Amino acid sequence: MDDFSTPGHSNYFGFPPSPANFIRPGKRPMSSQSPLVIFHQNRSNVELLAVGGAGGSTIISGVAGVALHALWLKADVKQAVDAPRMHNQLQPNYTWYEPNFPKAYVKSLEDRGHVMLAVNNLTVVTAAERANDGQIYANSDFRKGEESAPAGY
């Protein structure tokens, strides 16, 4: 129910209430769902990367961060999903970051006036990629805990 707004109460992530998202019969809440399926244009539109996440308003930055690491920084799917995350949603105006985020980046942002808050875990992301060798590799986020551990063999 936290996806809905309640008059006079910010949600779990600190977003102020929005009248457009108040609870009403038959209404669906607005969502931050933002799954990505990215195709390789030069290989007959073969799927290259699929990314999805859970975590309310932190989903968008989590999914985008994994895609950035995988496609721009050339990380494999394991490295991309496991990389430390940060999130800023403008309201409230502070930036959450995981404790293993590079300290030099945190300091640089603080020097620019950002209010930085350390949190243990942000978005939980799952991703699959088709690597250059044609194999499909996937990673279920360690941030989810035991629930993401292998359940069989």
Rank of each mutant, 00 (worst) to 15 (best):
G152E: 10
P29A: 06
P25A: 01
G26W: 10
G145K: 01
A149V: 13
S108M: 14
D133V: 03
N132E: 04
F101T: 09
S44R: 07
A50M: 03
Y137E: 09
N21T: 06
P29C: 05
N139Q: 04
W96V: 12
G52K: 05
L109K: 13
R143S: 02
L117Y: 04
D3N: 09
F22A: 11
G56L: 11
I60L: 05
R112W: 01
T95R: 04
D133Q: 08
N11V: 09
N88S: 12
V106P: 01
R130L: 10
E110M: 07
P99A: 10
V124Y: 04
W72Y: 07
V37A: 07
L71I: 10
A149E: 15
R130H: 08
R28T: 00
E110I: 05
A80R: 04
V37W: 11
G134W: 06
A75Y: 10
L49M: 03
G14P: 05
S31G: 11
P150R: 04
E146K: 03
D2V: 11
E147N: 07
V125Y: 02
V63Q: 03
D76P: 03
V46P: 12
P7S: 10
G26I: 11
A118R: 10
N11P: 08
D76R: 02
G145V: 01
A50I: 13
S61W: 02
P92H: 01
S5L: 11
G8Q: 13
R85W: 06
T123D: 09
G8H: 13
N21H: 05
T58M: 02
S5F: 07
E110H: 03
M116T: 00
V81A: 03
G8C: 05
G14R: 09
N139E: 05
A67D: 04
